[in-house]
Design a protein around this nucleic acid. Structure first.
Length: 477
RNA sequence: GCCGAGGUGGCAGAAUGGUUAAUGCGACGGACUGCAGAUCCGUUUCCUGGGGGUUCGAUUCCCUCCCUCGGCUCCA
């Protein structure tokens, strides 16, 4: 296991990850409430922790990555009411949409998506434990957490309860003993799915599901908790209060990792604001790698401002440069059998050093932007060797390709796409016809053939070795 | 009001107590091309919010102010 340093929000320091049970690492990421389509902000979070999991696995950690699904809450209920659907059917449908988008985005690192409503027994037990220990009280068929009873409350976010502004966003429930208390169990309302409980029929509060699930799946203490910064308070604060009070063990997690928000025109991208861009649409229009590149082109903790008019346009251009070098290397290697020459020793060493540096960057709180910068620099090396490629032996070719294999494994960029042979004969024939037209100076005909190919999604690039072609990416004109 | 995160070139966005502050996009010039594109080379010399302080040296550390965003118990 390579040592990895991670920034922890709670202690506000970057320190080495020491798994509680090496080489296992428990990773929990919250924030999936399937009541509508995923947007670009969700994509950023998903790619962030996908890369965290990929990196740790590369370094020899056995990551168990859990992402919970809040399949029943106020928003699900409201939306279901609007659409006239059963709430659990609605959330199931949007969850499928979510996993479909994740699959296309290349996010395959999540081991398990537990549904909140499958953990009602655990939730009831945890609430009971909190009541027994004096941290919670029943009132009017609901159960509330008594924040005043938990001394470390506010440690994660730096908030002092006295300084809060009650009712800033959410109306204060009159049954609460104190405005900062939060609901663990919600008394049943007509028409809602409900479960029996010692306090009457009802359903789980939002915060409790996470800790009921994590205590069950990851233990009373675990390694990494991820989420976006907007959940730091109150949600993550509540998780600490619940779990540590219920189990008597602390700290709940060793590292609180908070990803910067995706904003757009200076505002958080959010359904309530209504400024969302659909994740699925963006994947469709730009391709998954352009999106991943966009997200990873900044540090995960930084806020990222999405400009619909240019952000992905710019990422597409940049990614095309990065991926183009990888592709030309691959195609060039396929086009000629390996030769006899090795790489100059200095170059071989430089690539070794590059690979080591890439791992070092990731091991230092996941510095993806700098890793990408190094991959661009490697692209220039590849360009330099491209003309000499036919003479290079297999080992040299592999060394040149190694950084791209790294990029694929860790960042999910520069995948090897098997060149589709389908229709290739027709393209070759068209290119030959175009060459003949060019040969006799009939440029009108040559350009017509080229634009026909463009229409068919084939990009023609004339180079020193003659015309080459490739299939256009999803968003290339 | 309080808590948190930010403010770096035309734009996006890294990093660092110390020679020219990455990388990319864009722009411009050149090579190659019938043209375009791709690629390569070069240029884009005075870019670190304001003001103090510590230091031989601050963009980095400290104080203060301004601005933006997030949160304040349903928001990834």
């Amino acid at each position: 296991m390579r040592p990895v340093r991670i920034y922890d929000t709670r202690t506000r320091e970057t320190r080495r990850l020491v798994p509680r049970v090496p080489p296992k690492v428990g990773l929990f990421v919250c924030g999936l409430t399937p009541y509508d389509d995923a947007h670009l902000g969700h994509g950023k979070l998903a790619v962030t922790f996908d890369v965290v999991a990929r990196t740790l696995r590369r370094f020899g950690y056995r990551v168990f990555y859990v992402q919970n699904v809040t399949n029943l809450d106020d928003k699900v209920l409201r939306r279901a009411g609007e659409l006239g659907l059963d709430p659990l059917t609605l959330s199931e449908r949007y969850f499928r949409g979510w996993t479909g988008a994740m699959e296309r985005l290349g996010v395959a690192s999540v081991n398990y998506y537990p549904f909140a409503t499958d953990y009602v027994p655990e939730i009831l037990a945890q609430i009971q434990a909190l009541i027994d220990r004096g941290y919670a009280y029943a009132a009017g068929g609901s159960v509330y957490y008594s924040v005043a009873r938990f001394a470390p409350y506010g440690e994660l976010s730096g908030q002092r309860v006295e300084a809060l502004r009650p009712g800033a966003r959410v109306a204060v429930e009159p049954e609460k003993r104190a405005p900062e208390d939060f609901v663990l169990w919600k008394a049943a309302s007509p028409g809602e799915p409900t479960w029996e409980s010692p306090w009457g029929p009802g359903r789980p509060g939002w915060h409790i599901e996470d800790t009921a699930i994590t205590v069950r799946l990851l233990g009373a203490r675990y390694d990494l908790h991820g989420g976006a910064t907007d959940l730091k308070f109150p949600h993550h604060e509540a998780e600490i209060a619940q779990a540590e009070a219920a189990t008597g063990e602390a700290p709940l997690v060793n590292f609180w990792m908070h990803a910067g928000l995706l904003t757009t025109q200076g505002e958080k991208m959010s359904k309530s604001i209504g400024n969302v861009s659909s994740l699925s649409d963006a994947i469709e229009a730009w391709g998954p790698e352009v999106l991943r590149f966009y997200y990873l082109n900044a540090h995960y903790r930084s806020p990222l401002d999405f400009d619909p008019a240019r952000s992905l346009e710019e990422s597409r251009e940049a990614y095309a440069t990065l991926e183009g070098a990888a592709r030309r290397l691959r195609e060039g290697s396929q086009a000629s059998p390996p030769g006899e020459e090795g790489l100059p020793p200095a170059e071989g060493r430089a690539i070794e050093a590059l690979l080591e540096r890439l791992d070092e960057l990731m091991a230092d709180d996941f510095r993806t932007r700098e890793a990408i910068a190094l991959l661009f620099e490697h692209g220039r090396r590849v360009s330099e060797f491209l003309p000499k490629l036919p003479a290079l032996n297999a080992e040299a070719r592999e060394a040149l390709a190694a950084p791209y294999a790294w990029a694929l494994e860790v960042l999910g960029l520069c995948p090897v796409r098997p060149g589709s042979a389908e229709g290739a004969g027709g393209v070759e024939a068209a290119l030959n016809a175009r060459e003949r037209a060019r040969g006799r100076g009939d440029y009108a005909e040559a350009d017509r053939i080229r634009s026909d190919l463009n229409e068919g999604g084939i990009v023609v690039e004339d180079g020193p070795g003659g015309a080459r072609w490739r299939r256009a990416g999803p968003s290339e004109p």
